[in-house]
Write a protein that binds this DNA or RNA. Structure first.
Length: 423
RNA sequence: GGUGAGGUGCCUGAGUGGCCGAAAGGAACGGUUUGCUAAACCGUCGUACGGGUUAAACUGUACCGAGGGUUCGAAUCCCUCCCUCACCGCCA
């Protein structure tokens, strides 16, 4: 969430930036400031009254110690009277703080100045495109047909044991999946990321910390008995590893990678966009998360983009990089690059990675801070990106690499997969 | 799930109603000194939100797992919840 002092000092800028995100509820900005004014006023009143109570209480202690009972009694009444006045102030203060927080979390992150204006995905800017779109042989088919033909993925079985959007990978399909996870992790580790294998469920505080709660509650699976949420991405547990921590500047940057399944309810999706592996309720992903010094985050964002890019190149998949426009970016992001690979049989681009700088939006929620020497703690910047989401990579490999005699496995995966081809 | 013991600052750990934001030791940081990776000594060593200031200084309030309660006054007493540890039960 945004920092209140920043909003107070840069109101015009905030409004201008929110407009780029097509954010309409701009009155919330004034509300935040008004609530903060109210909060300060109540805080002052409360603190001053409480200070009187505290000093009187100390005196009572002294008087009682000296055996001056009557004087003590008199003071006791005075304190009780003050406390009577304090109660409603305290109540109002708590209510105001809650209202302020509730209002504050409704404000999205401010888009960076690099974010193009626009409302829909059509307004995203193609930064660059790389790789050749393969010409498929006659009779080439989409991945869901290939999955059946080579017995790689069974969607019906997943339907039976769980529901739609929960595919069962089998045989070479399962093995290819595992090979990719291993390869992606190794690739990230070689680039200096530390591997983590976090829990797949998180508590409420974690879900709030990265911005899933309160507004995206319906998109997560919720284990109500224990009040745990199934993670929609490893970003949630990895970022929250550092929740409420104060790091030293020399600890930065923190570079993490992790493989996890991801669970998304994605209510309301339908049609051919969700066919096969295109959109699932459970899928595998290898994620990158970095915690950086605020001065370095955009440099690091570029570095992460380059990293994901080279990973895609190593898989020899045609891809393009989009800089998301204000209207298409996520609530919490300041700048996002989406990576799409071309699915030759479906003849469309599929998003396989999203690399974002959240600046201090998440760290303010999570209270992840760092100190320079003996300086004051300040919020650091968080970034994350997929490297990569597996199902659509799988779809593209199957489709783009299909030949009359089988599916060619990208060279970099062959050692992990144990073969050069699926036949 | 049952029983018992606990949750205090970066760590260890003292503190059972006012003198406690909290002893002591360690770590870390800064400095002095010693001719060399060490030791000794001195100092610093929480966070948040207010007030105040050009900025500081200074100052108020809150925080000893979380939330309530008792009391003039709570780390200390009571209640609820969460968590950790030990043993038992169950179990991959």
């Amino acid at each position: 969430m945004l920092q209140v002092p920043f909003i107070r000092q840069n109101k015009e800028l905030v409004l201008e930036r929110l407009a780029v995100k097509n954010f309409k509820d701009t009155h919330l900005v004034d509300e935040v400031i008004a609530l903060d004014d109210k909060r300060k006023k109540l805080t002052l009143e409360y603190d001053e009254t409480q200070a009187q109570v505290n000093s009187l209480s100390k005196e009572i202690g002294k008087l009682m110690g000296q055996g001056k009972k009557e004087e003590g009694e008199a003071m006791r009444n005075q304190v009780n009277e003050l406390k009577g006045r304090l109660a409603p102030v305290n109540e109002a203060l708590n209510a105001t703080e809650k209202e302020l927080l509730d209002t504050l979390v409704k404000l999205p992150n401010l888009p960076s100045t690099l974010v193009p204006e626009g409302k829909t995905p059509e307004d995203n800017v193609v930064v660059r495109q790389h790789g050749e779109i393969p010409a498929l042989h006659a009779g080439a088919v989409p991945h869901w047909d290939l999955a059946k033909k080579y017995d790689l993925i069974d969607f019906e079985l997943g339907n039976k044991i769980t529901g739609s959007g929960f595919p069962v990978y089998k045989n070479k399909g399962a093995r290819l999946q595992r090979a990719m996870i291993q390869y992606f992790l190794d690739y990230n580790i070689n680039a200096g990321y530390t591997e983590f294998a976090p829990p797949y469920m998180v508590n409420e505080a974690s879900a709030f910390g990265t911005g899933q709660l309160p507004d995206k509650e319906g998109q997560m699976y919720h284990a109500t008995e224990d009040n745990f949420y199934l993670i929609p991405t490893a970003e949630v547990p990895l970022t929250n590893l550092f929740r409420d921590e104060i790091l030293k500047d020399t600890d930065l940057p923190v570079r993490m990678t992790g493989y996890t399944p991801c669970f998304r309810r994605e209510a309301g999706s339908y049609g051919k966009d969700v066919r096969g592996l295109n959109r699932l309720h459970q899928f595998d992903k290898v994620e990158l998360v970095q915690l950086t010094h605020p001065d370095k985050s955009y440099e690091v964002l570029d570095e992460m983009v380059a990293h994901v890019e080279s990973l895609l190149q190593s898989l020899q998949l045609p891809y393009r990089i989009l800089r998301l426009c204000g209207g298409d970016m996520s609530f919490t992001s300041a700048l996002t690059y989406d990576f799409e690979v071309y699915s030759a049989a479906q003849q469309k681009w599929l998003e396989v990675s999203s690399v974002s700088n959240f600046e201090s939006y998440q760290s303010n929620r999570c209270k992840i801070r760092f100190k320079e020497g003996n300086g004051k703690p300040q919020l650091l910047h968080t970034l994350n990106g997929s490297s990569l989401a597996l199902p659509r990579i799988m779809a593209c490999i199957l489709e783009n690499n299909q030949h009359e005699d089988g599916i060619a496995i990208p060279a970099v995966l062959q050692a992990y997969f144990g073969a050069g081809k699926i036949q």
